[in-house]
Design a protein around this nucleic acid. Sequence first.
DNA 1: ATGAAAGCGCTAACAC
DNA 2: GTGTTAGCGCTTTCAT
Lengths: 353, 353
Amino acid sequence: MGARGPTLADVAQAAGVSVSTASLAFSGAGPITATTRQKVLDAAAALSYVGPNPLGRQLRSGRSGIVGVVLGDALRRAFRDPVSIQVLDGLVQTLGPLGLGVLLVPAVDDAGEPRADPLLESAGMDVAVLFSGGRADDSSRVTLDRRGVPVVVIEGDPPEHGALIGVDDRGGMADLARRLRALGHERIAVVALPFGGDRREGVADAERQADIRWLVTERRLAGIREGGVEPVVVWETPASLVEHGAAAGRALLTGPDRPTAVIALSDLLASGVVLAARELGLRVGHDVSVAGIDGLDLPWLAPDVLTSVDQPLRLKGESVGLAAAELLAGGSPEPLVLPVSFREGTTTGPAPS
Amino acid sequence: MGARGPTLADVAQAAGVSVSTASLAFSGAGPITATTRQKVLDAAAALSYVGPNPLGRQLRSGRSGIVGVVLGDALRRAFRDPVSIQVLDGLVQTLGPLGLGVLLVPAVDDAGEPRADPLLESAGMDVAVLFSGGRADDSSRVTLDRRGVPVVVIEGDPPEHGALIGVDDRGGMADLARRLRALGHERIAVVALPFGGDRREGVADAERQADIRWLVTERRLAGIREGGVEPVVVWETPASLVEHGAAAGRALLTGPDRPTAVIALSDLLASGVVLAARELGLRVGHDVSVAGIDGLDLPWLAPDVLTSVDQPLRLKGESVGLAAAELLAGGSPEPLVLPVSFREGTTTGPAPS
DNA sequence: ATGAAAGCGCTAACAC
DNA sequence: GTGTTAGCGCTTTCAT
């Protein structure tokens, strides 16, 4: 840093051409003789000029080539979540070759102070991706709207200006529910994702169930009911983590009236339930069936393979990337709902008689 | 985007002041009357101007406020690795409040084509963080050097212009090795991290062991020897993943001459070894001891807690962030080696007699 | 305390 | 083909 390097003007002067010609030599956009071009390139090399300063280019073109990725209020949770990670991977993989960068932006803490994150407030980004998804009135979304930044929303309310990408998890859960019923299960419990940001844990009564703020949770639960299953109990967790699934499993699978099947609203939760069941001496897939959703690869569950509703995470990330690119190009991508598929594992089986 | 929003000039005009005054109203740097300031702010609100365009500011100041994070050649692997993730988390957490953004940059594929990633080549960043660490001649590092971007290297060769952050994993491994010897273990096997990018799997002979390209692997292995342990066998893995640890465990713990202890060069590998040992009917911590390094939280290993060498991952990320900020401010941070600590779990015990 | 003017480095019209 | 001329939106001396 410090000493500002040579500029395009320096190179042009050294090469004995005008600045605009030098610019063409680098961008390649426009007519230019091979010799002139080479002359410029040589001069650049001599001055150890490393190419046009992106800042100048950005100001001129009005675009930064940066896609802001707004991750849930606690970044650390987003990073721990294999689901977000895989989507992020697909996204970066798609955007990179397009020359677009991914800027990580912590979401504003909705619960805490109203003081927004400086990045969300003012970082240069041409389009934002909302991993948190969520309602239209989330403060991150309001901030971005105000700035006029178009957004790609993952699994949330459709944005006014932007795109929406999601998966048919509702349909997937309905399908799963039907399959469990077909296996003879009648007492089915649900281990749910968080209802909102308030980190409650335990059985959720009907009233509480009517007050779900997180769309994904609401939708997956609705899917189960759509599949004809009325859960004997819905257990709310504070986060989609193995340990919370295990805690739920211990609570639900103890006692005489235990359910014959447990549906968890994420694979991480489901795997916790499997571990708890094993702890309690239950044979998973026989004494109790457990299923999740996401389609994660969980090698440490071996020899079991979790029965799950597979969602195409990488593809989701790629779709988000394409939508962002289209938005950047001035288009208006249609809302996209990706299909899910049932993955039969070893953790489900006929209801014990 | 499309319709460019109002500019500072528009606001100034609406407020009946000059552009420079309007600028002061926003930056706060300089003398300005409260009334004038308010007048400007009101005009801005009326025009729904959302604050100075970062691009203009950046061009003027010559800095983008962006820290490029160069993640290993396969981003997806970096994202799957809880170690990188936690460091990344600490980094973002530190940089965010400083108003600095984290830009994800895929590293150039050293094996593949020499065509560098467009982002690495030309994205605006004031400083880069190299997660891959690595040797001074890695192509990503060469590219950044050429661009004159200072770098913070994590666990690698010290950069010419930049900072170096690492942990004393060598010392930690030496300590671990001594403790195992003190427990009476004499036949100790090592499950190693990858030696380089060539994804080999299996026993590494002496010749192969002399050809380790990844510094971290080399250093941790050296630490074990420094602790007085000459491994009876070194098993090379293609990636730090549970399944590869499990494969190693199955291979190493079968047969009559099996080691009484296994040291893995990562916790993920170690946990795979634990799973394999359980599969084989061995009591971990009694029949065989297993230890790792990283200090990950592995709830699904319950009821076992892995014996490990704890490295302060979050702190590492924070230190990287601070070093980046210091570099940005023109400083020259000293190389930093963070301490590690031994974490005794349930997976190690006295050697069986 | 405020305004005028210069210019950060670059690209895009347009003229030659 | 190449050069000339304007800015992109902002900050920052330097006058006033």
